[in-house]
């Protein structure tokens, strides 16, 4: 009985918070648009609704996605933006996490606080603040003009560069915290052992520290990559009209076309794109765990 409860709780959790919403979206993606409230047919009605649904079941909305190059270009562009931002966040976040883990113990709570503090301000307001910093007459350009590094204001706002800056800034804590947790647990004597055995400091870092913080790196990268892939707020505020991301395409399907079925089909594909690497990663982890034991 106890065992059953132990298994049932996480499964109930998954069913309620993942499977049910997914099935609703999947069902809408297989419906047809209509001028009604809600704007698709058939609606969610048991018995009659299910029969009508099965009778006219087709995959035309998914076929539609393959017919227009907008969608795969947007998926690819989102993957590219998410991948590059994850790498950038890692490059910025790792040294910070490393510095935190190496800092004297009495400093660490303060450093941790500094990482968490920005979360107390609304995310939207922080992105708006970046608009003020990056715009043509913004603080950054004013400062660079003042120092004489540049003569003409740089165009950063409404470009992909601004989107990268926004994503790295917003998701940095999600990268730092798992890496810090991994580095904090690491046994410092391992580095000493490596150096005693003839490793240079750099080699010891590469051969010991990095592999031991691998789980933190992977966890942090997923925490950044997954939300960045479907990001909507940052590209719409900081990006230009040429920034193509699937989150914006989804918005257009909902708000400009009022085509919920196609919007849902886009969402289903996005989910599949996300689920496949996660499952592969978990398989890999399991295999490793089995091999080690």
């Amino acid at each position: 009985m106890r065992r059953f409860v132990l298994i049932a709780v996480p499964y109930a959790w998954l069913v309620a918070l993942f499977l049910v919403p997914f099935l609703i979206v999947l069902k809408i993606s297989l419906s047809d648009t209509a001028l009604a409230i809600p704007p698709y047919v058939p609606k969610f009605e048991w018995a009659e609704g299910i029969m009508a649904f099965l009778r006219q079941l087709d995959f035309e909305n998914f076929i539609f996605l393959t017919e227009d190059n907008l969608y795969w270009k947007a998926y690819l562009s989102s993957l590219q933006i998410a991948t590059i931002s994850t790498i950038l966040t890692l490059m910025v976040g790792y040294p910070i996490a490393y510095g935190m883990a190496r800092a004297p113990a009495e400093w660490r709570p303060t450093l941790m606080m500094l990482i968490i503090l920005p979360f107390w301000t609304s995310f939207l307001i922080r992105v708006y603040a970046w608009m003020g910093i990056l715009s043509q007459e913004g603080f950054l350009n004013q400062f660079l003009l003042w120092t004489g590094i540049i003569n003409e204001p740089l165009t950063i706002i409404n470009t992909n560069t601004a989107v990268y800056i926004g994503i790295v800034y917003t998701y940095l804590p999600f990268m730092i915290l798992p890496i810090y947790a991994a580095l904090d647990r690491m046994d410092g004597s391992l580095i000493e052992a490596a150096e005693d055995l003839g490793c240079s400091r750099l080699m010891a870092f590469w051969l010991v520290t990095i592999p031991l913080s691998k789980n933190g790196i992977i966890a942090g990268s997923f925490l950044v990559f997954i939300p960045a892939l479907g990001e909507f707020v940052i590209p719409s505020l900081l990006g230009g009209s040429r920034t193509l991301m699937i989150g914006k395409v989804l918005w257009e399907e909902f708000f400009s076309n009022r085509d919920w079925p196609v919007a849902s089909a886009v969402a289903v594909i996005l989910l599949l794109i996300l689920v496949v690497p996660i499952v592969l990663f978990q398989r890999n982890q399991q295999k490793q765990a089995e091999a080690e034991s």
């Binding site: 190059n69 907008l70 920034t243 257009e252 076309n257 009022r258």
Partner: peptide
């Protein structure tokens, strides 16, 4: 109508984003 609306929105996205 729905079909024309979709064409118009698609055209608009294409004009704005170049895709």
């Amino acid at each position: 109508d729905v079909k024309t609306q979709r064409k118009v929105t698609r055209l608009w996205t294409k004009i704005k984003s170049g895709t």
